[in-house]
Design a protein around this nucleic acid. Structure first.
Length: 490
RNA sequence: GGGGGCAUAGCUCAGUCGGCAGAGCAACUCACUUUUAAUGAGUAGGUCGCAGGUUCGAUUCCUGCUGCCCUCACCA
């Protein structure tokens, strides 16, 4: 629901205008980050500074006041004194509220209690806030408001901004890492005429001028591999993908994927890349031990990560061999897995997800998946039923997925045809002939990897819901929310 | 989609076994020119998520709806 503007704020706004104060002026240049002020203090001297930020507290003392001023870099106390500011400015001060932005000119020094303080000589109102901020101490707990009005969440919490600063840093590190290995960053279409590269229900949209239905991409894969055909050799994209599926603690309908493809290597090259990247990130944020705290857990990112085969893990945790068709059926029955319409390997994969994934705590590479569940992966030279693929599991979740890219156009077309024939609404309705034709022109042998950035950031920020690492997670539109209806001009 | 839970002041939360709606912070007024969760005194603030039903009376009980959380299913 929309909250009306409190009458007192409107009255203050009016009073400011009557005093000739512009509540929304245009410029305030030359302010320095508040976080650096503490270090500028010289004992016994007044050091001139200019600051700009939001008022987060006001402690009035008769004809003087202490304010807390906050910018992105930190917070500092500001001292207003009537004698120093003069009567006119002091009257403006009396019309300030928590939440207002002001610019301050003054001198920084310590008070007698040792608190770094800007002793203001003058100040400028930079933006009048008409809505109150959430309470100072308990902060904002209502997740509906936190996610819908993320700006309030960011203002009233010290921890939330840190999560998003780290998210930005993680992405910066990934770019630097890949750029350093000779990858080039590219952008490929979000709107696809065939939503391929993964198994998921797509969002559908429509282009009016072309009168054409389009799908929001569910993966970056097929366009990036076209670029390998074009000779770019090492490409990556960090981009949003969209999957029209359930929402929960680890799934948002739009999420950020990194996909990288490298010519003339295979999935083992991607494994080295992935391991180095993850270990580097853990070292950057958690030191040489590379132990990542996650809830009650401590995840050990020290390389090399264990390599386990799909088949071994299945044997170990489900007590059944991948190729024992009867045994797999029996175990599925025992685990009460609904096997209707599933083939042998799909059933086995259900068992894997149920019995094995919950055991995969520390970073673990799972390899040698059955090729039947990997439509875009090359098979192992020594065994055509096994895919050259790995998945990296951490804290029970799949963080990365990589394989040796299938580059045999005839095999690829055959696998696409089987997918389409399955009639599932999680695979395209038609074969992506355009992609197959690209392969016909020659895709060099290549390794490719996909990494879920949101989940990675969750691990590295000790966040347990994907919404904590997505600035504006998708929520249902609330009653009374949204644009104000305005009479249109005919 | 199934199951369970939550929705009370701007914020954080009490509360009413069905009988005039409460606190702290924020806001407003007054006092106070070095406080820092400033302090002291006072004031105001509510369609108790929405719509029905039961009842003399519903914020409370019942039904439906909306939104959110947890969980299962699908998925990364």
């Amino acid at each position: 629901m929309r909250t009306p503007i409190p009458a007192e704020r409107l009255q203050k706004l009016q009073a400011l205008r009557e005093k000739g104060v512009d509540p929304y002026p245009r410029l305030f240049e030359g302010a320095e980050p508040i976080g650096g002020f503490r270090d500028r203090i010289v004992d016994g001297a007044m050091v001139p500074v200019r600051a700009a930020g939001r008022i987060t507290a006001i402690r009035g003392h008769g004809k003087a006041a202490f304010l807390d001023l906050k910018d992105r870099s930190g917070k500092i106390q500001v001292y207003f004194k009537k004698d120093t500011l003069g009567d006119a400015l002091y009257e403006v001060y009396q019309l300030l509220d928590l939440g207002d932005f002001i610019g301050v000119d003054g001198e920084v020094a310590k008070t007698r209690t040792g608190e770094p303080t800007v002793f203001a000589k003058s100040f400028t109102l930079l933006s009048k806030s008409l809505q109150p901020l959430p309470a100072k101490w308990h902060g904002l707990k209502d997740v509906q408001i936190r996610y819908r009005k993320r700006y309030l969440d960011l203002v009233s919490s010290d921890d939330v901004p840190k999560i998003f600063l780290r998210r930005a840093d993680v992405i910066r590190e990934i770019r630097a890492f890949l750029d350093g290995r000779g990858f080039i960053e590219v952008e490929t279409p979000v709107l696809h005429s065939i939503a391929g590269g993964a198994t998921a229900r797509p969002f559908v949209t429509h282009h009016n001028a072309l009168d054409m239905d389009l799908f929001m991409r569910i993966a970056l894969e097929l366009h990036l591999k076209r670029l390998l055909v074009g000779g770019l050799e090492r490409v990556y994209e960090i981009g949003r993908v969209f999957r029209n599926e359930g929402i929960d603690a680890t799934h948002n309908p739009e999420f950020t994927m990194l996909e990288a493809y490298q010519a003339f290597t295979d999935f083992t090259g991607m494994m080295e890349l992935c391991e180095t990247l993850f270990a580097n990130l853990a070292k950057k944020y958690f030191g040489e031990s590379r132990r990542v705290p996650y809830g009650e857990l401590e995840l050990d990112f020290t390389p090399p990560f264990p390599r386990r085969t799909y088949r071994d893990l299945l044997r170990e945790h489900a007590k059944v061999d991948l190729e024992d068709h009867e045994g797999v059926k029996r175990v599925a029955r025992e685990m009460k897995i609904d096997v209707a319409g599933l083939d042998h390997y799909a059933i086995a994969n259900e068992i894997f997800e149920e019995a094995v994934e919950p055991t995969l705590l520390h970073p673990t590479f799972v390899t040698e998946h059955p090729v039947a569940i990997c439509p875009l992966a090359k098979t192992k030279a020594s065994d055509p039923t096994i895919a050259e693929r790995f998945e990296l599991f951490i804290a029970h979740k799949e963080l990365a997925n990589a394989f040796s890219e299938l580059n045999d156009p005839i095999d690829q077309e055959e696998r696409f045809r089987k997918q389409v024939a399955s009639g599932s609404d999680e695979v395209p309705k038609e074969v992506d002939v355009d992609y197959v034709v690209a392969l016909e022109h020659g895709l060099p042998p290549a390794g490719g990897i996909g990494i879920g950035i949101d989940r990675l950031v969750m691990l590295l920020t000790n966040s347990h819901n994907i919404r904590e690492v997505v600035l504006f997670p998708l929520l249902r539109r609330q009653e009374g929310e949204g644009p104000i209806e305005v009479e249109g001009e005919e």
